[in-house]
């Protein structure tokens, strides 16, 4: 490559590099620095507290809850969103026409505000909503949807799945479209039926798209905030207390910037390790299909 072209490359990459430096690298080091102090950002005096914030965080019930709640969400949300988006993409792919129209239709929830949808869901599940009045009058069922430690995380997982299914189905649809029709024709000649075609052809050939969607879904779980914040505030009894809610409460509500930063650092390490493990597992799954 010529020197001039190299310079041009740097020039075009510079907006992204500057952006990353200002909004990612500098804050990351800032957070790292803060996590070793007891500073609240405004006090003229602060102390270096070493690993005290990290030790306090590891012992804290809120952080412990955030750790387990995230994996609980992962167990519920990831299969739900993967199956949902796969079904949507299979439906869209099988349509003879208006594929784009339906894709956009399923994509629309992704654009909806998390706050607005949470407020609507709160109304639907309130004690005196039409649904609950009907359940009480017809079936004598009085369900405290958001007050139950089992139902509250499930409802939040359903809401987030509804929001992201359309988006992920776009990725899967493009994967499905790249599978040649000839493969299915050949399998049909060999006597393969619907389910065999799905498990032996569609799923293995869809692996690259599934890989992307799974990693995105796992990463997303660590960023859940709006829905539990509006619907349950992290309760009942920490059952929906995510990493982001814990960081928000410590850093912005209690103004413990140092301690909040320590939790954020722990969260980023846990996220990184989890994604690496999930990636390795997906690669093993891919190898079984012959993907390297």
């Amino acid at each position: 490559m010529k020197k001039g072209q190299e310079k041009l490359g740097w020039l075009f990459a510079s907006p992204y590099l500057v952006y990353s430096l200002i909004f990612f690298v500098i804050p990351l080091f800032g957070a790292l620095f803060l996590s070793f102090t007891n500073w609240n950002l405004i006090s003229p005096q602060y102390e270096n507290v070493g690993f005290l914030n990290f030790i306090k965080a590891v012992k804290s019930p809120g952080v412990k809850a955030a750790f387990f709640v995230t994996y609980k969400f992962m167990i519920i949300f990831v299969p739900m969103v993967l199956i949902g988006s796969l079904v949507i993409s299979l439906i869209i792919n099988s349509l003879p026409r208006f594929k784009s129209f339906f894709s956009v239709g399923y994509f629309l929830p992704y654009l909806a505000s998390g706050v607005a949808t949470s407020v609507v869901v709160k109304g639907i599940l309130s004690y005196n909503s039409a649904l609950n009045v009907w359940l009480r009058n017809t079936w004598h069922l009085n369900i405290d949807w958001l007050g139950s430690q089992i139902l509250a995380p499930l409802i939040i997982a359903v809401m987030i799945s509804w929001k992201f299914m359309g988006y992920y189905s776009l990725i899967l649809t493009s994967g499905l479209e790249s599978i040649s029709g000839e493969v299915y024709e050949a399998a049909a000649i060999d006597g393969a039926t619907g389910w065999i075609k799905f498990f032996k052809i569609t799923l293995p050939l869809l692996y690259p798209a599934m890989f992307t969607v799974t990693i995105l879904a796992v990463g997303l779980v660590f960023g859940i905030f709006t829905e539990p914040y509006v619907l349950t505030g992290g309760g009942p009894g920490f059952s929906t207390n995510t990493w982001q809610i814990e960081i928000y409460n410590q850093a912005f509500s209690k103004l413990n910037a140092g301690y909040g930063s320590a939790i954020a650092i722990i969260d980023s390490v846990v996220t990184f390790v989890t994604i690496i493990i999930v990636r390795k597992l997906l690669e093993i799954w891919g190898k079984s299909y012959g993907w390297e």
């Binding site: 004690y127 005196n128 007050g147």
Partner: peptide, 14 residues
């Protein structure tokens, strides 16, 4: 005590 979320429970007489 009703701890379940309700819309305007006092106003609606719940």
């Amino acid at each position: 005590i009703l701890t379940q979320k309700a819309t305007d429970p006092f106003e609606t007489g719940i």
